[in-house]
Structure formats: structure tokens, C-alpha cells
Amino acid sequence: MSISPDDTPAPDTPTPRRGRNAGLWLLVLVLLAIGSYAAWRRWHAREQDDAVAMRQQIDALSERLNAMRTEQRSHARRLQQADSLNRVLRDELDGITQRAALLEASVEKLADPDRHGAQALRLDETELLLTLGDQRLRIAGDLDGARRAYALAAGVLEGIDDPAYLSLRQTLLQERTALDALGADPKVKAIAQLDVFAQDVTAPVEREVAAQTSLAPWWRRAFGNLIQVQPTDRAVAVQAADRAAALAGLQLEISLARAAAERRDVAGYREALRRAGVWLHRLAPGPAVLARQRAQLQTLAALPLSPAVPTLGSTLQQLRQMRAR
């Protein structure tokens, strides 16, 4: 098969256009790269601006937060001061309330008809005299002074005509009867009996010793300084010096007991009498005399030194209750 010259392919004529297209695409790519770079730079600059603005906002928020914290602390201090002021005001209000209550009570007492006139003065005087009598008997043991104070109180109370105080006069009469029934002061009785015992014990000692010496057999009078006969259960002072020392000790203990009785010191009084009984063991010549003297000591130790009145102070308590009502 032969090929004619007309059948040969014609050369490609659009080659220049294909080169222009490639350059155009290259230009587009370059423009796109430049645009992308410019857009990236713009975006990056915006991001930096946003970061700066965000940082500024954070700093502003931090400053504002610090200011709010400072303001909060200031408010807390003000609240604390206000709380303290409220507490002080509350205390002052309580004090004012208490003073108002006291004033109201004072006004009520002043408005009480029993607080006016001669009756109020007589009641005050009666209460004062009853208090004096009660204290004189309880503290000083002055029975006569208490009787005088109660007698004066009874005289003052008789001048009140109000029948509401009739039971008070009866109570005062019973209390005065109990005081009169006591007789002498128990302390005076105890001291008097103690003096009688001291005279009974210390005075006859030397006479008994002299009598026993004169009535002693010849062998005791001859050998008394060499031989001593004593009971086995106690040591009796036989020599004159020993008996003088024992007698001085007994007198000293009796004096201490008398001083304790003056003070109404029951414990000291009984302890002094107990020590006096120890000296009696050395002075008593015989068991019968010793038993009698010890019984006397026990009787003395059992004596009361203060008056005992169970109803003491009942009139004063009743008067105060009536005035309180």
C-alpha cells in the first residue's frame, strides 16, 4: 500500500499556544502563592494583634480582679467593724434595758404604800434590830445583846397597826421566849465550871500530899527519897519538883481551855481538856480520885460554848418575805 504525499500527517501547529498556557498557569500559581503568602501574613498579623488584645484584656481583667479583691477586703473590714459596733450597741441596749428594769422596780417600790410614812420607817427599824440581834448572837455570842435587840424590835413592831403583821409579832414572841429560856450564856457557864474544877483539882493537891506524908508509915518517911512506890498502869509524880511541874502543866492547860472557851473554840477547848487529863494521871493520888476527876473533865468537855436556838432568824426571814411580796 503506497502512501501519497497528501496522506502524511501535518505538523502540530498549536505549539506556541501550549507554551502560552503553561506560562499562564505558572503565573497563576505564582499569584496564588503570593496571595496565599499575603493572606498568611495578614492572618498571622491579625493573630498577633488578637493575642496582644487578649493579653491586654487578661491584664485588665487581672487588675479589675485585684481591685475587686481589695474592695472585698475593704467590705469585709467594714462588715467586721459594723459587727463590732452592733455588738457594742447591743450591749448598751441590754444595759439600758436593765437600767430601765431597775428604774421600774424602784418606781414600783416607791409606789408601794408600805414604803411610805411611819409604817415604812418602823419596818426598816424592826429589820435592822432583828439583823443586829441575829448577828450579835451568831458571831459574838452576845446573848444579852441579842435579847435587848429583840426586845427593841418587839417594841417597834407593836407600833404597827396593820393586821397583816400579827403573825410576825407571834413569831417574834416565840423567838424571844426561846432566847429567854437559854438562861445564862453557855460560855459563861463553861468557864465558871472550869474555874470550879481548877480550884478543886489544883488546891487540894498539896494538902493531900502533906496529909499522906504525915500519915505515912515510918519506913516510907525514912526511905521515901530512896524508894518510890507507884501504880503499874501510870507514872505518878511523887517528888516535890515533879509534882510542881505537873501542877504547872495542869494549870497551863486549864488556862488554855479557858481562853478557848472565851473564843468559843470548841476543838481547842476539848483538846486542852484532853491534855489536862494527861497531867491528872501524874497528880491523882488514887484511882477513885482519878476516876472522879476524869468524869468531871468529860462533863466539862461536853458543855456547849455557843447558844443553840433552832428558831433564830425566823422572824427576820418572815419579815423579809412579807416585804418582798
Rank of each mutant, 00 (worst) to 15 (best):
V107I: 07
R64C: 02
D112L: 05
L129Q: 03
I191V: 15
Q212A: 07
F223G: 07
P16Y: 10
D94G: 12
Q193Y: 11
V201Y: 00
A151Q: 13
Q321R: 07
D142M: 12
A235L: 03
H75E: 15
L102E: 12
D50C: 08
S74Q: 13
G141F: 01
V289M: 06
R220P: 11
G95F: 11
Q72A: 14
R221V: 11
G313Y: 01
L319S: 04
A284I: 01
I160M: 03
L143C: 07
D6V: 09
I160W: 00
D124V: 12
I227G: 06
L290P: 00
Q296Y: 08
E104G: 03
P287Y: 06
D242Q: 08
L24K: 12
L179G: 03
D114P: 06
G145M: 06
R207Y: 05
A100Y: 07
G249L: 00
G313C: 02
E63Q: 13
L168P: 01
L29K: 05
A149L: 08
P16A: 14
Q298P: 07
A101L: 10
T213S: 14
A154Q: 13
A245E: 01
E158F: 12
R282Q: 10
Q321Y: 07
G133D: 09
E125P: 11
L103N: 08
S74M: 11
A261S: 00
G277P: 00
G277K: 02
I139N: 09
S74T: 15
I139F: 05
Q251L: 04
L110R: 15
G224S: 10
R221D: 13
I227M: 05
V30K: 04
Q193A: 14
Q212C: 02
A210P: 05
Q239S: 14
L31V: 10
L26W: 04
A308Q: 14
A295E: 14
